[in-house]
Design a protein around this nucleic acid. Sequence first.
DNA 1: CGCGTTTGACCGGCGC
DNA 2: GCGCCGGTCAAACGCG
Length: 617
Amino acid sequence: MAKGSGGLSIDSDPIATSGFFLHKPTVPASFPEENINPKWKQLAATGARQSMDVKATRSPPNFQFPVKLINTNEHDHDHDHDPDSSLPSDNRRRTVIDEMDFFADKKHDIDRMTIINNGTGDLKDSGSPAGLELNVNTGLNLLTTNTSGEQSTVDDGLSSNMEDKRAKSELAVLRAEVERMKVENLRLKDMLTHVTSNYNALQMDLVALMQDQNSHHKNEQHDGKNKDNGIVPRQFMDLGLVAATGDGDTDDLSLSTSEGRRRDRSRSSGNNAENNNEDGTVFEQDKKGTDQREESPDQVWGSNKDARFNSKKTVDQTEATIRKARVSVRARSEDATISDGCQWRKYGQKIAKGNPCPRAYYRCTMAAGCPVRKQVQRCAEDRTILTTTYEGNHSHPLPPAATAMASTTSSAARMLLSGSMSSTDGQMNSNFLTRTILPCSSSLATISASAPFPTVTLDLTQNPSPLQLLKQPIQFQVPFPNPPQNLANASAAALLPQILGQALYNQSKSSGLQMSQDMQPNRLGHQSQPALQQGQQNSLADNFTTATAAIAADPNFTAALAAAITSIIGGAHQNSINSINNVQTTTSNNNSSGNITTSNNNSYGHNKITNSSFPSD
DNA sequence: CGCGTTTGACCGGCGC
DNA sequence: GCGCCGGTCAAACGCG
């Protein structure tokens, strides 16, 4: 096969529609067979040997978050099949909700009622299937609201007609329901306001805390030998050990363990030059081999050689685990990759054993020397499922859209470190984590610390039924600090891992090492000050992460997310969400609304961004 | 012609 | 020691 002539590629998929499905593919309206990329069918039929000559499109990933109510009717359906709609997806979705007639079924009977409600503007979206939860109990509770006045406008005394009576009763009941939901809506709005303010405060506290930690690490671990480099902007959360590096150069160095492994190869000198050009002599010692590479983090860790040698083994293990810790996200996507906010360059592709679908390797190219890698591979059984595995920490500031996934990998790795390495029984801790914080882990997330490299796997392909979505009480607070329209347009794959990662991180601190601690899932949201062996006195951060832990603990988090979004957007239903809290909702929007990132946009050795529009930081 | 992708070759780790 | 396998490199290639 001639080079460059095509061959195996999962990147050659023309992008058809959005890549994220919260609904089961078995629902025809959500994922009709004809929406499946024909090449996937071809792949399924012919295996990986199928040649695909279609050049990868330059279309940015259309990674949407198609929250769909059961009764979002044909509008939503149309949007699913109209990825090229000129409207931003959030607007489209909002439009859908705005257009939803709460009383559509009764429209002909109670037109006047609808008009009245339109005046409020609060009740157009129940966040639930109309009629599902409304449960109009005709003939009951007629006196719950003061409707007699309006009733008289309908009932002029000619009530011998039974149908009129029934209609009148229904009208009254509906009005009562409207009033009730008005109140509920106001309550939820207040809640949203309250929690949003709390979130903002927490975020500010957390930023201050991170700054304190930065300075703390600098003073503690670099005392005397610190260069007076300026503070390098960091991602929202780094691996703990990585965060200990402090200055930019060593930061890159320690972060680049996998990079260093790669650079160990003598024939990689060309690549070294590339990196050195960007980062000075940061990677020079990598050329000396593995042993030298292992020395480097120690230098980072501290100047105390004795202490260093005493802990060398632990440090090496830790480093290896950092390097190997991964976060895997399974999501339905027709796109070649999911939009995670970073710039990636494909550097390889392999047929992995056990899966005829090729595995693509990507490297973060937002900054030279960034060690972050990701692997993208389609599921052999269901080729609509895209598995993206992240490894490493970014060594550069990230756009908001990218912090989600980045902090996820960081947090997950940190969790795995503290949970599986600081304890004598990592597996037990992992199981414990799974059982406690992720009671839904069998379907939503799994933690595998016994694997060659500990991996947190988020399975976003298994969606609860809409009925379950709405009927199941949401036990945990789902935070939405951002405007709902942003959330509605969020990249769930960027949001969920962030949340889970934070949750896992928090859990690792609290339960991974403190098994005796009372860790009831329902109380996660209130558990904010677990005892920490790691000496991290960041109680504020704990607040932050415990809140996200609560989210991750929800058995139907994605469903809850969808329900919460819809409820917030169009007026909340009582069962949709209980309250709001805090999550750093960095979103990856589609191309029409900016904030998009795509992969495969960067040439080798260059960082030219050709298809991104990060908001300027 | 520049840039991004492709893909065979190469390397290290690991199991036998 | 050998082979397998995952991961990476980098020259070749195609496209705009």
